[in-house]
């Protein structure tokens, strides 16, 4: 039992070390700034131009977009880059489990999204004049959503390749599809039955609804459902990442 706890503490500590290292090495890299920081803001402003939108609505959408794009940007950028440079081998050969390594990588994207989300909050409060109905719920939603979408990004990062370009294309494509089927630009209440049914397949729908609860004080779905789906999605997203990493070890990546 003592060994179990010692090992668990070691592994958690190593995940944190990986996270800190990636923060130092990658947060200011052009790929992260472009896909993780600028993209959600570009998208928000391009969709908001000349549209009538309440300040609170705008802020909730901006937050959902930021969590979604920023958190999911890290995995597809960092892991293939590290594979290309050979530094990923250093991590795979280190005395830690694959789960620990993936946990560290998820935290990198999640922390990036949390930081960028707070910039979105500042923009919402000071430039859109929005107010926040439930600040604690907003913080919880940002944290849970960031970890979930970072885990989603990790799936693309786990594709066995050494070329970040091979990963960016499918990851961008799928993120755009998820964006358009979710209730970010067209509210759930205005969707047709079929569109609404499809939107329930996207975890972004639940993140958007959670932000509506937090910022506007109201949402279409139950709060517990939003939180549960986001949390469970994060856990489920880990499974393909683990499988793809194992496949990578068979193929030699």
């Amino acid at each position: 039992m003592k060994n179990f706890w010692t090992r668990t503490i070691d592994e958690l500590s190593q995940a944190w070390i990986v996270t800190l290292k990636d923060i130092k090495v990658y947060y200011l890299r052009p790929g992260m700034i472009m896909f993780g920081f600028l993209m959600p803001f570009f998208m928000f402003f391009s969709f908001s131009v000349k549209r009538e939108m309440a300040a609170g609505d705008g802020m909730a959408r901006l937050l959902a977009l930021t969590i979604f794009f920023t958190a999911a940007a890290a995995g597809p950028f960092i892991i293939p880059t590290e594979r290309r440079l050979g530094t990923y081998d250093r991590l795979l050969a280190a005395p830690m489990s694959l789960l620990t390594l993936l946990a560290g990588k998820i935290a990198v994207g999640a922390f990036f999204a949390i930081v960028v989300s707070f910039i979105a909050v500042i923009i919402g409060i000071f430039f859109l004049n929005a107010s926040i109905a439930q600040p604690a719920l907003m913080i919880a939603g940002i944290v849970i959503g960031s970890f979930t979408f970072s885990a989603m990004g990790l799936i693309f990062g786990s594709i066995p390749t050494r070329n970040p370009g091979d990963v960016q294309m499918p990851s961008t494509l799928i993120r755009w599809v998820l964006l358009f089927v979710s209730g970010v630009f067209v509210p759930l209440s205005e969707m047709s039955t079929i569109a609404r049914g499809i939107s329930y397949l996207s975890p972004l729908t639940y993140a958007q609804d959670l932000m509506n609860h937090a910022v506007l004080g109201t949402g279409e779905l139950a709060l517990w459902l939003n939180l549960s789906v986001l949390f469970l999605s994060g856990v489920i997203f880990l499974l393909p990442s683990i499988k793809l990493h194992k496949r990578g070890r068979v193929l030699g990546y």
């Binding site: 070691d10 500590s13 190593q14 070390i17 990986v18 290292k21 130092k24 090495v25 440079l85 050979g86 530094t87 081998d89 250093r90 991590l91 280190a94 005395p95 830690m96």
Partner: peptide, 20 residues
């Protein structure tokens, strides 16, 4: 496979931490 964005010292500290 060193981390070129880190100093020599930071590279060694990172690896040392990784090995507890």
């Amino acid at each position: 496979n060193v981390y070129t964005e880190l100093t020599a010292w930071d590279n060694l500290m990172f690896t040392g931490r990784l090995y507890r």
